[in-house]
Simulated assay, not measured.
Amino acid sequence: MSELIASESQKLYHDTIITLYEIDASFYGGGVLRFQASSNQTLRFNGYEYFPYPIQANGFEYTGRGQAPQPTLTASVLDLSFTAQLLSANNLENCDVRRIKTYRKFLDDGSDPQPTATLVVDEFYIARMSSKTKDQVTFALASKIDMRGKQIPGRQIIKGTCMFSYRVWNAESNQFNYINATCPYSGSSYFDINGNVTTADKDICSKDLKGCKLRYGDSPLPFGGFPGAGRY
């Protein structure tokens, strides 16, 4: 929170709070939708125009119970441009959403324009469309720290098994197929799954350190497992 916002919020009587919304549809090749329900007039902040639009937002506040908010955003679908964006962008799923709060005086046409003075900026993304009627649509939002459903860490920690995809021999072309390979090995030494020397068409990695050392020798091993991992 900036000093300007802190000073304004401590006043006995302070200016009207304005809430602005942004939906970034660039994930689907679209633009940024900017709108607000605080005024019937177009508002301008930090050089951007925020158009009046029927919208309701709920659940943005933190409860202090240790859980991230799971807000919802309900907007009218009567506007043709918004509806077109909605249909062309997979219901806006995975698009970033920003809720910006500031005081009326800090808008571009306010008594004290301050483009960087914001009360709070909440950042979420659209997890899914939770409901839709002929008049409106409701989006369920999720916090960005949810990583869009990804697990942390991104890879599963397995001690002795390499998780990389090894090259595959293509009998029709008599050469290796590397399209889905994530292992960087492209050498001409061939070993079967038991580590025995073999021909190219029978080359299969054992997915352990032994198989990696056979192919790379004394070079650094790009082993896709975690041999130093221990049990807790």
Rank of each mutant, 00 (worst) to 15 (best):
E123I: 07
D79W: 00
K11A: 13
L73Q: 05
K207F: 06
M1C: 03
L12W: 10
T74I: 02
L80F: 12
Y53C: 04
I55R: 00
I145D: 15
G228P: 01
V121D: 03
N174Y: 01
A84S: 13
S38Y: 00
A89N: 13
I158K: 09
Q114F: 00
Q85F: 01
I204R: 15
K202N: 15
N170D: 15
N170L: 05
L33F: 15
K150D: 09
K210R: 11
G154C: 05
L43Y: 14
R155F: 11
S26W: 00
P222C: 03
N94Q: 14
C183E: 01
K105F: 00
P184D: 04
D112E: 14
F106Q: 09
L12G: 14
A75I: 11
F124L: 12
P115R: 08
I5E: 08
L80T: 15
I193R: 12
Q151G: 09
K213M: 07
D112C: 02
R231I: 12
K159P: 02
L141Y: 01
Y53V: 05
P153L: 05
T118N: 12
Y103A: 06
Y50D: 01
G149M: 08
Y28H: 06
I158V: 14
I158S: 09
P52L: 08
Y21R: 07
E61V: 09
S7Q: 14
H14A: 08
T138I: 01
L87E: 09
T74Q: 13
E93I: 14
C183L: 05
G224S: 01
I23Q: 00
D192E: 00
F226P: 02
S131G: 11
C212G: 03
R128L: 10
L20C: 01
T19N: 09
T19I: 05
F223R: 04
Y166N: 13
A6E: 14
R65T: 12
I193K: 13
S131P: 03
M129V: 14
L12M: 13
Y53A: 04
G29S: 05
G154V: 12
E22N: 01
A75S: 09
N94G: 02
K150W: 05
A37C: 12
E8Q: 14
D79G: 11
S219K: 13
R128C: 08
E93N: 11
K144C: 11
Y178K: 03
P220C: 02
D201I: 00
S76M: 04
P184L: 07
T182L: 05
L107V: 08
D203A: 03
P184K: 07
S39G: 07
